[in-house]
């Protein structure tokens, strides 16, 4: 196996080695940094390394999408939520709520990676029948051409379904992030004595009674709770 590694050209080997180091360092940064902002920045590091490896494997379109969507949208959304919630204070990593969970997790990880490497040295992995979508370089076309043709012909229905999925996700994010209107009940935190005169319940819990806003939902709902934090994805 190391012989195969040596048979690769020097630039390829160097690219792979540096990207692998960047990816693993970023992943370690995500799981070890106490500050959530640092974790998000380490995540960007890992995503860039993966994008480089996409380019190295002639998946140039996916590399561009990886940078634009992941590093450009998802991580920015993460950072936005971290700073919006103000949870960038440090987490106490030392405390361990579940006894023995960490050693057990490390043991599981060691078993898993050992099993994967044992499989790797003993088996030929890429087996099975090919899909119907065609070759990566059909007729010496570019990667974008081949990928676009597959997406818009063979996988057209799945592509249309993603449109519905994205619309549902946006609507869901808006509904989740919307501040409850004054007077709308948050069942869990309603004080018993403020339940008020019961209106006839028509269709569930969303009856819009007219109690003053001061009685409803104290606690965490800060005054500046934003209206639109879900549209970034």
């Amino acid at each position: 196996m190391s012989g195969a590694m040596l048979a690769a050209t020097v630039p390829d080997s160097l690219t792979f080695a540096i990207s692998a180091a960047v990816i693993l360092a970023g992943a370690f940064g995500v799981i070890t940094s106490r500050n959530a902002v640092h974790a998000a920045l380490s995540l960007v590091m890992t995503l860039f390394g993966v994008a480089v490896l996409f380019i190295e494997q002639q998946a140039s379109f996916l590399a561009a999408v990886q940078i634009i969507v992941y590093a450009g949208a998802i991580v920015v959304l993460f950072l936005f939520v971290i700073m919006f919630l103000g949870v960038d204070r440090r987490e106490n990593v030392a405390e361990e709520p579940l006894r023995g969970q960490r050693p057990l997790a490390l043991l599981l990880v060691a078993v898993a990676i050992g099993g994967v490497i044992a499989l790797e040295v003993s088996a030929h992995w890429a087996t099975g029948a090919h899909a119907v979508a065609g070759s990566t370089t059909a007729g010496h076309h570019s990667n974008v051409y081949v990928l676009g043709k597959a997406v818009f012909t063979t996988y057209l229905f799945a592509f249309e379904a993603t449109a519905a999925l994205l619309v549902i996700a946006v609507v869901g994010a808006v509904v989740l992030a919307k501040r409850p209107r004054a007077g709308e009940s948050q069942d869990e935190e309603r004080p018993e004595e403020s339940a008020g005169p019961q209106e006839p319940v028509v269709g569930g819990s969303s009856v819009d009674d007219e109690r003053p806003a001061a009685l409803v939902g104290g606690g965490a709902s800060s005054s500046g709770a934003a209206e639109d934090d879900g549209g970034g994805g």
Binding site: L77, L166, L176, D229, G230, G232
Partner: peptide
């Protein structure tokens, strides 16, 4: 992308 949007909405 959809999962992160909905998940972060839930976190908020």
């Amino acid at each position: 992308a959809a999962e992160v949007v909905v998940g972060l909405g839930i976190v908020v």
